[in-house]
Design a protein around this nucleic acid. Sequence first.
DNA 1: ACACCATTCCACAAACTCGTGTAATAGTGT
DNA 2: ACACTATTACACGAGTTTGTGGAATGGTGT
Lengths: 126, 126
Amino acid sequence: MKDAKLELVEFKDTCCPVQVMLPDETPLTDKEANDLEDLFKVLANDTRLKLLHTLARVEEMCVCDLAQSLGMNVQAISNQLQRLADRGIVATKRSGNMIYYRVVDRCLIDILKKAQCLLNDAENNK
Amino acid sequence: MKDAKLELVEFKDTCCPVQVMLPDETPLTDKEANDLEDLFKVLANDTRLKLLHTLARVEEMCVCDLAQSLGMNVQAISNQLQRLADRGIVATKRSGNMIYYRVVDRCLIDILKKAQCLLNDAENNK
DNA sequence: ACACCATTCCACAAACTCGTGTAATAGTGT
DNA sequence: ACACTATTACACGAGTTTGTGGAATGGTGT
């Protein structure tokens, strides 16, 4: 079992031009691990991913348009939007009857893109 | 419902120095959404996150050491390592009795770090 | 007050997840 | 062949997730 080191490495053949080893820090605390788990859990659903991908492109949209755009019934979409809202990933704005949803922290979209890059890497490397 | 635009924006107050709108591309296909779902699903577990975080710092480790390091029994660890291996996230190398696991594509570690940054942002912005 | 619309709440069934305990597999050394 | 260690396979039960259908909430316009 080798010692952990702080390294700086370039991986030119991947989506991530510069990769660093994690520093020689303490292991994940239970709270950190649980917070990360919650974040990834809310991303681990195709409906929510399509919602985020759609919202990323149009800034904001109401529930019925999102439902129509995904070809699903409104209850299911509202249900998933609630879960995204619970985690603070999306926020709402009421305007008349309609409630418009938007992505709060667009860093999340960066994570989605990195994840797609990772999948492309895996695809390309056979 | 505004049109999607290709934008380049700086968010200096977040972990992501440069954020781009997703280009005006087609919505996620079912396959893309399912692949992303599978990726995030395998990350959405505290045990697997701790395993990846540990492996990121030591390059490679055998099952029993990982189990001891996490304070869990070997079957549970082997079970979760299998899931990571099924998705091609970790790979194995046998040496005598022991089987050593390592992270395959270290871009994944970059995603973990970005996710932690996102959580820190959320923490800092109250 | 009333009809109407968008959204949310609730209970439910089917499906999935995870750690546990037992048993099986595989390599090492005598 | 045998004992021993490391790892994996399997079945099980408790818990969680997701879409569905029906009902409730809240705003709009007449």
